[in-house]
Amino acid sequence: MNVGFIGIGSMGSLLIDTFIGSGALKPSQITASNRTFSKALCLADRHPGLQAVPSNRDAVINQDLVFLCIKPMEFKTVIDQIRDVVQPQQLIISITSPVMIEQLEESLPCKIAKVIPSITNYMCSGVSLCMYGDRMTDADKIRLTGLLSYISEPLPIDEQHTRVVSDLSSCGPAIMAYLLQRFIDAAVEETGIPHEQARIVASEMLLGTGQLLTAGGMTPEELQNRVAVPGGITAQALALLNHELDGIFNRLIRTTHTKYREDLDRVKVSLYGKEVNGP
């Protein structure tokens, strides 16, 4: 299987590094292009055998799968560049949530999927959110999920739930890391514990908590009940959080959804022109 990558920024390079590191792909199976060609050359130096190419068209030709790891407003340019070399049997995979499968199917004469990865995939953990276009066969889905299973748990979702599930899977690591950072900083400020010691303890705690909630089979509610003895210290802490954080995550989700809707509108204008969306 030959796999092309258009765009090797943060997530594109993460996918390539992880596919290779997990044994899912050999460097010789990968062709990569990037707006800044020197970055593709550096990636090829890091993974001998990987082919860096100067044009996006070259990243598509003779590839079985092609990952589009680009920003929403870059899709119109890239689609125009590759449209006449895309073949019907090829599978094009977007990792960009506000670009809809229907839009890609209208623009390209091939099979289309959308996959939303997560930074947790770098550790061969977490989920990959999978959405499939109408032209994909069961064999195509098996091939794609087989590749993704090396680095994640592939999870089919409905495209209408892309944003909220992405909040949990892709934004979630940054949100949890931010909360952990604030917890660590407060511990240092209030008690004088060495920052590095607090960071190690808290990070290991988060790892163990994740294992309890997955392999351990606990729900978040069950874990809280196991730790928080009525009238105890943890119960007091949870009561404070319940009061202070009331509604904060609802507002967080409304914020991400508002930005998502703005991005959807911008992509439509970019792909179809303003006349489609009114003045």
Rank of each mutant, 00 (worst) to 15 (best):
I16H: 03
G23I: 03
G247Y: 14
A215F: 12
V127R: 01
L212Y: 08
E153Q: 12
L238D: 10
A202E: 10
D263P: 13
V188Q: 10
I175Q: 02
V267R: 04
T77F: 10
C110W: 13
H161V: 01
E196C: 07
M123P: 05
V78N: 08
L180H: 09
Q160I: 05
A239L: 13
L212M: 15
H195R: 15
C130T: 00
S149T: 00
T234S: 04
N225I: 07
R251N: 11
M131T: 00
E153P: 06
Q63T: 00
T137V: 03
V227C: 12
G23S: 01
M100T: 00
Q29P: 14
E190T: 01
P72N: 05
K141W: 10
R261I: 07
G7M: 14
I193H: 04
Q236V: 05
K76T: 03
T191G: 02
M100I: 03
D45W: 14
L15M: 13
Q181P: 09
A239C: 07
Y272K: 12
D246G: 00
I79K: 08
F37M: 08
L180C: 14
D167Y: 03
N250G: 02
R143S: 09
A187E: 11
A59I: 05
K274P: 11
M11R: 04
T209F: 09
E204M: 13
I20K: 01
G210R: 03
E196H: 15
A198S: 07
G273I: 09
L179A: 12
C124Q: 13
F5M: 10
V229L: 15
T209N: 03
Q211M: 11
L50N: 01
N2K: 14
N34T: 00
E275Y: 12
D58L: 14
L68S: 04
A228F: 11
M136Q: 04
L213E: 13
K71M: 14
Q63H: 02
I248W: 15
A202L: 14
V3I: 10
A32T: 00
N225D: 15
M100L: 14
R266E: 14
T18V: 04
L271N: 10
S33V: 04
Q236G: 06
I119Q: 02
P88S: 00
T145A: 03
I70V: 10
I184N: 07
